[in-house]
């Protein structure tokens, strides 16, 4: 029974299997994340109250950097061995296929990152409310990062220098960071975080609708 979602699921499965076989690629961003978290106390001293104040922000910034670094892997090997070209030639809408790749990337890098962030936040004694806010914002925010990042990856694929990629996406990431930190700070002060969460959810919907289209268009341009 082949529906139009069959290829979507096929690509999703394929990417997940590849990711599971390449375990180190999976673990590297997490290791990076933990190491950068360790850097902060080393740089700023071990003053407990000060550290607790910046923990949430530290976790978010580090998660953002980690996901930026892992973005490059989304299309690189597929671009090198030509399977991206095959995707663009297929009968199915490229937008959908690209969406599958983005989803797979988020499942492989975003979800573990969320789990590790929660663990780190817990260990660094974030309050329960802040932890929940952190969880919700990461849950809503990391898919946005993957989606926006996919556009930039598709544009810069095959070009030299990973710096360009970070240059392109970091300004686009700033709203996500702002809303997330507002939510976490509000939660810390015992205020409601629903407004920020609605905003993030709205951004997520916007990104889900537009980013795969833009990514598909960029891939076509790069391969034309």
């Amino acid at each position: 029974m082949a529906t139009r979602f069959t290829p979507f699921i096929c690509i999703l499965k394929r990417d997940l299997i590849i990711a599971c076989r390449n375990r180190y690629e999976l673990i590297n961003p997490l290791l990076f994340f933990i190491m950068v978290i360790v850097l902060f106390p080393l740089a700023m001293g071990t003053d407990q109250t000060m550290l607790r104040d910046i923990t949430a922000g530290m976790i978010w910034v580090t998660a953002l950097l980690a996901s930026t670094l892992s973005l490059d892997a989304m299309f690189r090997t597929d671009f090198e061995d030509g399977s991206v070209e095959q995707l663009t030639l297929s009968n199915y809408p490229l937008t959908l296929l690209v969406g599958a790749k983005i989803l797979a990337h988020w499942l492989v890098t975003g979800v573990p990152l969320i789990l590790v962030s929660l663990l780190v936040g817990y260990i660094l004694s974030l309050s329960y409310a802040a932890l929940m806010a952190l969880f919700i914002t990461l849950l809503l925010g990391t898919p946005i990062l993957s989606l926006i990042g996919a556009i930039a990856v598709a544009l810069t694929i095959g070009l030299r220098g990973g710096m360009l990629l970070s240059l392109l996406i970091l300004p686009l990431y700033m709203p996500v960071l702002i809303f997330s930190m507002l939510a976490v700070n509000n939660a810390n002060d015992g205020l409601s975080i629903s407004a920020e969460c609605y905003f993030l959810a709205g951004l997520l919907v916007l990104a889900i609708t537009l980013a795969p289209v833009a990514t598909a268009a960029s891939l076509r341009i790069r391969l034309s």
Binding site: L155, L168, P171, L172, P175, A214, S218, I221, R222
Partner: peptide
């Protein structure tokens, strides 16, 4: 054409960035 896509993504983002900031 790559730049055009980036500029369009940017223009969608500019109001968001502005109001979020």
């Amino acid at each position: 054409r790559a730049g055009a896509i980036l500029a369009l993504v940017g223009i969608v983002n500019i109001p968001i960035i502005h109001y979020s900031v």
